[in-house]
């Protein structure tokens, strides 16, 4: 399947990626190739086959809602590129 330039640009926006001009063209070719390959799956009849999201028979794991030792605010923020007053700092959102 050939993916269009508009589709690549749309998906890049959804994925929060900014693509350079050359990068977009390359991705059109590469993604089209991979999607064509993936379409071999369409040759399989999967009507009525239950999807597997997980191989184990897992259930929700619950625990009591009690406080436990955790990272300090300082530790949690240690890798923040910018921080202020005990919070992550990001560019202004509201005018």
């Amino acid at each position: 399947m050939k993916i269009s330039k508009q589709e690549v640009e749309h998906v890049a926006k959804l994925a929060r990626l900014e693509l350079a001009e050359g990068e977009t063209d390359k991705l059109i070719d590469q993604l089209s190739n991979i999607l064509t390959y993936v379409e071999t799956l369409n040759g399989l009849d999967t009507k009525g086959v239950a999807p597997t999201s997980h191989v184990l028979d897992i259930k929700n794991v619950m625990r009591d809602d009690v406080s436990r030792p955790s990272l300090s605010q300082e530790q949690a923020l240690a890798n923040a590129p910018e921080k202020a007053a005990g919070h992550y700092k990001v560019p202004k959102i509201i005018e």
């Binding site: 799956l41 086959v49 597997t52």
Partner: peptide, 8 residues
């Protein structure tokens, strides 16, 4: 579709 083939 992928999840179904995973089952197979």
């Amino acid at each position: 579709k992928g999840q179904q083939v995973r089952t197979l």
